[in-house]
Design a protein around this nucleic acid. Structure first.
Lengths: 238, 238
DNA sequence: CGACGCATTGATCGCGCTCAAATGTCGTGG
DNA sequence: CCACGACATTTGAGCGCGATCAATGCGTCG
């Protein structure tokens, strides 16, 4: 078994922020040492298995969460089962911001997930005491809004090819320029993210492979070959 | 000519917040009298004609805006002209939140628009000095995110009938239960908002009229008749 | 009046969905 | 090691919703 960067912590125990591998990427980065301790004091570490629901659309927003390891699917559903993934969350991402009194989306663990849970009231009180934390949250929320607007353009106006190309390029940057992209999510997740069906996603990936734009070693491992070509497709240029 | 609720103010003049008709609806509502004056001191009133661009996607985010009268179209475009309206803004709404260093969307005046312009740096400085203002902005951003997620579900997964029904019901509440809904935007705006074409929007509205769910007195005046029926369609129930 | 812009309606097309089958992948147990 | 089943992915065939192309209606303004 591979040793994770983040040390395994028993669920329910207090977080050890100073050793946390995602601190630099997360909202916690805005806090100096002693303030970080105050945040840590209200955090509870939680473990989730694959498919486990972290928070449920429509239910009272009891807590905020910060992912320390694993991937999470954020999604909304229609009564007949149609599902729209609004986003994927990675280690360091903050969940629950998109809430008023009730959660707006459901968060489901894709694989094993570890996160810090902050009870809503205590977190909000602390946020008011720590201006740099609120600053950071506003920045995160604004950034999420920009992402959301980009996704509306994708969902409302882009073709299947453009959607899949955009998706591949979005995944590209965080994973670095070398090596293949590892997809933590299934075709079904991707389809629900892009507003398509699994078949269309699969067909489009196969087409990109035939055209020499990508290489599919295994189903969940994509190597980008012709980034510029994909970029042209994604942005609908030429 | 109809006298507007908000007194006409010459462009470039300082705002008169205490007389402002939209104060209760906007971010300014979070501020007590003397703080409001500080905000007013950095505000510049601006007038825009129909079609005028208030801010442009990709350009440096030089200022925030608060609409005091008129309607605004927020949208993103693809190089080939395809356009996605990410939202409509009404009096009291705050623009520019969805920005990092550059604007993420373009804001275009639909009719005549009047707004308060806050230079970015001065506004951010003031925001840090006035916690209740930053609080309010975070609340606004969170709310916008919830709206955005709902729209992703609509754009990614709903049928044309479901989209149009959702649109009509969304417009319904702010306009009250009685009388017809006045649509300030064109069919083209609605289509770009719903990820459809003008023809499909028009056909769907006609279908709803034939089915006795709505009444179309004139093209931009819709009377909802069967709200429950529309609700069933919008939510894809039964 | 005619010209223009916006909305509606009609006819046809095509992208992406649906239904169906084949193929691949992985874990489990003989 | 292979046989087997469960499940994810790929591929194929045909269809339908919404787009496209085109014509008409309709209100406003010069």
């Amino acid at each position: 078994m591979v040793t994770p960067v983040v040390p395994r912590i028993v669920a329910g125990r207090i977080a050890h922020c100073e050793r946390c591998g995602v601190r630099a990427r997360s909202v916690c980065a805005s806090l100096p040492g002693n303030d970080l301790e105050r945040l840590a004091s209200i955090a509870v570490v939680r473990q989730c298995g694959p498919g486990e629901v972290i928070m449920m659309e429509g239910e009272p927003a009891a807590a905020y969460h910060n992912i320390t390891s694993g991937f999470v699917r954020l999604h909304k559903s229609l009564p007949d089962g149609r599902d729209q993934v609004t986003g994927f969350a990675r280690p360091g991402d903050f969940l629950g911001l998109a809430s008023e009194d009730n959660y707006g989306v459901t968060a489901t663990a894709i694989g094993a997930v570890q996160l810090c849970r902050f009870p809503r009231d205590r977190f909000r009180k602390l946020m008011h005491a720590l201006p740099s934390l609120e600053d950071r949250l506003l920045a995160v929320a604004s950034h999420e809004l920009v992402i959301a607007q980009e996704r509306m353009l994708l969902l409302g106006r882009k073709t299947a090819r453009e959607r899949v190309a955009s998706f591949l390029l979005d995944l590209d940057s965080p994973c670095g320029e070398t090596g293949a992209i590892l997809l933590p999510m299934t075709r079904s997740d991707i389809a629900d993210y892009l507003g398509l069906t699994i078949e269309t996603v699969s067909r489009t990936l196969s087409a990109f492979r035939r055209e020499g734009r990508i290489d599919l070693k295994v189903a969940n491992q994509v190597q980008l070959i012709d980034r510029n070509g994909l970029r042209r497709i994604a942005e609908a240029r030429a």
